[in-house]
């Protein structure tokens, strides 16, 4: 029973990315950003709880650990031949997750600190920090105060009107607090491999939201699309020290953003609310299953401890 309840939280993250793609197509980018991030957090939490419950079940099934749990009766679980391998796998997955999560968190902090130091020592005008480097690059740097970091390589690539698009785009990231969504999705992606694609969807939603805000600010969708395409092509042309892992099999996020800006913004189709509802349902099923799994497991432990009646 317990083990069955723990299956949905572990499998749903693999199923949700199809829904994520549709949410990006149908929902307003800001709504998609919020819905997808929330889904990622809930699914990650549910999957970690499910794995944790499996690990504990396995531990308490071992004669070595049963006394530590103050069990007076044997724990009512499926046969050890099933529980022990499952628990062993769960332990492995949790350990790897915790390790990559920690490593990613440390890397984020380090990158943020370096970026912050860099911004503080660069000439600042308003919220803009210019870094003298031929490599075209630009990013929003959250903090007090928010900053926009742009390299001279990027500034020289863009036409004057396109520079306004870039500034408006990065300001939208900072004003919308997008880094919070990106960070949450990044950490969630380390909790379950199925959530990596959801993280990519969250990143795309954040960029789309900033693109739309920039298009509104400069009042020209086509110009916005052009600025993004030009910046991306310039990045491509510049020699880079970073290894290129980008797979050529799928269309990457930049062409999708440009295409979305060039398309006439249509009225949101009616299916939009269904997509949002399905995402919520996915998250709810996962969370409920994990919660009931943990509650049932807790009850089983109390029974085994002689503190509750079956």
């Amino acid at each position: 029973m317990t083990v069955l309840l723990l299956v949905p939280p572990l499998l749903l993250p693999f199923a949700v990315h199809g829904l994520a793609g549709r949410a990006l197509d149908r929902l307003h980018p800001v709504a998609a950003l919020r819905a997808l991030t929330l889904t990622a957090i809930v699914l990650a939490g549910a999957s970690v709880s499910a794995l944790g419950a499996l690990v504990l079940t396995g531990l308490l099934a071992l004669p070595l650990f049963a006394p530590l749990g103050e069990l007076v009766h044997p724990l009512h679980t499926p046969p050890n031949a099933l529980v022990l391998p499952v628990a062993a796998v769960a332990t492995g997955v949790l350990t790897v997750s915790a390790w990559t999560l920690l490593r990613s968190a440390l890397r984020q902090i380090r990158a943020y600190r370096t970026a912050r130091r860099q911004a503080e020592s660069s000439p600042a005008a308003g919220d803009l920090c210019v870094v003298d480097s031929p490599h075209p690059d630009a990013y929003a740097l959250p903090g007090r105060p928010h900053r926009i970091v742009v390299t001279t390589g990027m500034l020289r690539t863009l036409a004057p009107a396109e520079r306004e698009v870039l500034l408006a785009h990065e300001r939208a990231h900072n004003a919308g607090g997008h880094y919070r969504y990106l960070l949450a999705a990044e950490l969630a992606a380390h909790c379950h491999p199925g959530l990596r694609r959801l993280r990519d969807a969250v990143q795309l939603a954040a960029e789309r939201a900033a693109d739309e805000a920039a298009a509104t600010a400069v009042g020209d969708r086509r110009l916005t699309a052009q600025a993004i395409a030009r910046a991306a092509l310039a990045t491509r042309a510049a020699p880079s020290t970073r290894p290129d892992f980008a797979s050529a099999a799928t269309t990457g996020p930049v062409p999708q953003r440009v295409a979305a800006l060039l398309a006439t913004p249509a009225d949101r189709p009616r299916s939009a609310s269904w997509i949002a509802l399905l995402l919520v349902a996915c998250a709810a099923v996962s969370a409920c299953a994990a919660a009931s799994g943990v509650v049932v497991f807790h009850h089983e432990v109390e029974v085994a401890q002689g503190e509750a009646q079956r």
């Binding site: 890397r107 990013y139 990045t235 099999a249 930049v254």
Partner: peptide, 15 residues
């Protein structure tokens, strides 16, 4: 993997 929101992501040749 860093969460700094970059203006443009890396492109593949198809992109």
């Amino acid at each position: 993997e860093t969460v700094l929101a970059r203006f443009v992501a890396r492109l593949s040749s198809d992109d």
